[in-house]
Design a protein around this nucleic acid. Sequence first.
DNA 1: AACTTATGCAACCGCGGGGCG
DNA 2: TCGCCCCGCGGTTGCATAAGT
Length: 289
Amino acid sequence: MGRSPCCEKAHTNKGAWTKDEDQRLIDYIRVHGEGCWRSLPKAAGLLRCGKSCRLRWINYLRPDLKRGNFTEEEDELIIKLHSLLGNKWSLIAGRLPGRTDNEIKNYWNTHIKRKLVSRGIDTQTHRPLNETAAGSANPTELDFRTAPKSDFIKTPSHLELKYNEIRFKSNADSLEEPNCTASSGMTTDEEQQQRQLHNKKQYDNPSDGQELNLELSIGISSVDSPRVSSANSVESKPKLDNNNFQFLEQAMVAKAVCLCWQLGFRTSEICRNCQNSNGFYRFCRPLDS
DNA sequence: AACTTATGCAACCGCGGGGCG
DNA sequence: TCGCCCCGCGGTTGCATAAGT
């Protein structure tokens, strides 16, 4: 017994999409909207798997996609976000309007990896290659992106989440955390326009009197954590179970995802990320509110 | 010009998570 | 609480094209 196939493979096309198939998909979504991918192919008269339709739409047909080469600014942003989030391509894509996770993933593997290597930077740890080979300078610090889940310690209280919050140094007002829901965070048209203009300015020129600080480090609290006497001692290594890892992940993502507003990557009134079912919506408000 | 190799990108696959009955 | 179903994510594959010999 296994999972039932997502679709009837015998009656579905595979491989490259034809123009006719594209048009059918576009026409259908234009009328009915996104969603219900499983039933969409039949309804749209397509001999395709629902997943294939979804992928085609999201990665290629969506009207808000930005085609063309990545800019230098996008490159640097991807590198920063990857150092922060690791291979969370969908999260990274959420910060880059018009770019898809697949596109960023491909771009990372084909261009940015090479770029980092040429700079002498490890593409996984984002540390200098010679430093990576010799191990972390601080043995008590855990690398959130690369540490196996089993390497995290028992209780969240033993952790110190050091998150240098992304901020615009000269703009205190940009630190506010607007609600991402339409019902509670709706503003007037004028306010929306001003915010969009403000956001766009920040996105277009983040160095214009403002500085992005995307540094994140997670380490063991110096007060509460057990002493680590030797970096090689298995016993001394902090242990985290799956729950704690999830706690960390959620804490980090919660901090990170709210920044879609602060960073100005939001392109419409309702934060697109928060609208999706990828987890953003839940973390839209600050944790401590 | 013909062939081989490298590269880039679209598409596929399998799995995990969340919603729901 | 459990199991089913669907969606979405990340890793991988395969094809088309460019570059090199």
